[in-house]
Design a binder for these strands. Structure first.
Lengths: 221, 221
DNA sequence: ATTTAAAGAACGAACATTCGCTTTATATGC
DNA sequence: GCATATAAAGCGAATGTTCGTTCTTTAAAT
């Protein structure tokens, strides 16, 4: 066999490759936000990334792979957020922060949430990953809620799993409306979200002293 | 100037035109469900509708108009559903029926919900219509809930408007997850939805006999 | 000298839309 | 009634563009 250890020029640097991938992903995210997955051309992404088509295709073999990478990144980020939640006593507050965060991700510019879901519906490998991530998030949130209940930070009558389901339902709804209405118009919905949370999760005083009434004052009957 | 009132032949029949529009819309919906708005070609829609491109363009001047018509139709349908709700005593039941209905619309095949939202984000005229329809639905639901409360069918501590916001949040979440997970996997979420509703809206006995506690009973403190 | 990285022109396929033509149905003149 | 003029309805190939991707070439670094 001819030379395996001949001259060796310019070893492939994985850290530089990772940097390029990030640069491409950032450019793609920016373009996709502006025009959506299928209305954005590869040339647009190339221009935004200041890279040629040939170079880009060295890092992502197809457009679908860019989309998949963006979706994956999004889900991993969400998992991290959910993992960090509800360690403190103020579970409701933490969930509202999460809601605000979700809202701001769609702020000003368009979010990719709708595009990602649309893609998940039609791409089987994306679908599998989505289902897995979703199950993980729900399980994690249920555990956190159960833990918070055990520590006496919060009281609720639902199963932790069901409670997690409800919370996720509302958060997803928030994301959709933020996408459809824009962040500004969707912001008041966070207060609706909070109000619902306070009905579902009765907050308790850190030392067991209960609050008077978890909800708004009554209107006339 | 030659004949203005010469012979007059074959008057344009608006009912036939409407029939053709429907045929085209049905074909487009079918295609769009399968492949999404921007991955479906006009030729595909023509084939599905068994119509030539030239004929199709007589009824819809552009692809975007087909999309807009489908979205509009969807929203009008939703408004009708919300208008009919909560006339009876079982508000929660009616809302769950609505949830089931939303779920089944995505059953088996993909829904267009995500595609529509993605389009709304980037098309200004669509966005205006969406905001209007959304506001209308929310107002209507709030009125229905207030009415049900006045009649003693249900009791809740939230503002009717806030309550409506929460319900819509959850319903939207349901639609998204039905789209992402498929109808089968999303079905259990309807029970979560119902459980949440029962915490927010305490059902009352038809003759005004109130149930014991509008909110959750307390756990240990 | 050799290999990686980048470039960017080139590729065929597919796209939304248009256009000139044909068919079809009807209202009129005889 | 029949022929005919008229316009709506429909057709489908053609249009020019744009697409995602590939390929050949060049630059840089070891």
């Amino acid at each position: 066999m001819e030379g395996a250890d001949q001259t060796m020029a310019r070893s492939a640097d994985p850290v530089l490759a990772q940097r390029r991938r990030r640069q491409i992903l950032d450019a793609a995210i920016s373009c996709f936000r502006r025009r959506g997955f299928h209305q954005t051309s590869m040339q647009e992404i190339c221009a935004e990334a200041q890279l040629s088509a040939g170079a880009l295709y060295r890092y992502f073999p197809a457009k679908a792979d860019i989309i998949a990478a963006i979706a994956e990144e999004d889900w991993v980020g969400k998992e991290a957020l959910f993992n960090a939640i509800a360690r403190g006593p103020d579970v409701i507050g933490a969930l509202c922060v999460l809601a605000e965060h979700a809202l701001e991700q769609c702020g000003g510019e368009s979010s990719l949430a709708a595009d990602v879901i649309a893609e998940v519906m039609r791409d089987q490998s994306l679908s599998l990953r989505f289902v897995a991530h979703d199950a993980h998030v729900r399980r994690r949130l249920a555990l956190s809620l159960a833990s918070a209940q055990r520590r006496g930070h919060v009281a609720f009558t639902l199963t932790p799993d069901r409670a997690a389901g409800v919370v996720i339902l509302m958060l997803d709804g928030l994301v959709v409306r933020a996408a459809g209405l824009g962040a500004a118009r969707a912001r008041p919905l966070v207060e609706d979200f909070r109000a619902a949370l306070e009905l579902i999760f009765t907050p308790l005083r850190p030392h067991g002293l209960r609050t008077a009434h978890p909800v708004t004052q009554e209107t006339d009957a």
